[in-house]
Amino acid sequence: MAIEIPKTTYTGKIKEIKLGKDEKAVVVGGESCYPFYLFEGEMPHLPRIAMEVYDSPPEEWPEAALEPFAGITDDPAAWARKCIDDYGAEMLCLQLASTDPNGLDRGAKEAAEVVKKVADAVDVPLIVWGTANHDKDVEVFRKVTEVCHGKNLIIGPVEEGDHKQLGAAAIGYQHTVAASTPIDINLAKQLNILLGNLGVPDELIVMDPTVSGIGYGIEYAYSVMERMRMAALTQQDDKLQFPIICNIAKEVWKAKEAQISEKDDPTMGDAKKRGVLLEAMSAMCLLIAGADVLIMRHPEAIKLVKDMMAELTAA
């Protein structure tokens, strides 16, 4: 007797969102099935990986993460070029770590100059990530969105507490927002509704569900993303039919398991291999949960994930 394999009935589709501009713009989303369920539907655009660039030299990165960018971490524009020229980055994410009021507390004007410099140096889509301090992010992004008018940035995190100001800036200067909520599907839906009420058009929204790495609660992020896709694809929940962006690299590399050297704890094994694998495996988990854009750090971890995607989608 022939076995009939059960099939999910999909009634919805993820919105296709264009990120960046001109030739190097990318389109994400468009899925009509669960992640990589290509036997049930389509994934017209494979997930994209944005390589991280920091606006100031990272202070707490382990050796393995610094090594690929040695000599250029004090020059964000050169770092950005290296990601593209040497590592084939198709997207970038500039982390505005130096604006953190609890750290260097660099001002809005200076931050905007750095963003502009990087944006001018590259042609791939550029994500710009703040510190999630609402007052500071509002100040910084007001300036950044203005001086980068026409660059079609993706700005985040846009949270309930600052969505009005950041949403307005995004509408005014034509940037995309990464709507960010703390691992909670109801709040994610609510923020998308609020952005819609504010007048942010659908084509300028992607969602950041807030993620963590393996060993630090990635299963919660996984469940929320999975539930988002179920609502979007099987319950026609159009407020959740947005591509998902995952800011995973910094979560992985700050963990003790990625930080500690082999010398300090020989039982942990080779530090580079460990960090790269942790990043790649965390990213892979998020991909099969529904990520459309991954923010990643180590070129070797990125390569592993890309190979995996190629295998999953091979005809």
Partner: peptide, 12 residues
Amino acid sequence: GESLYSHSWLEL
């Protein structure tokens, strides 16, 4: 559960 809860559920 047919429609996912959000605080604005009555407005949708």
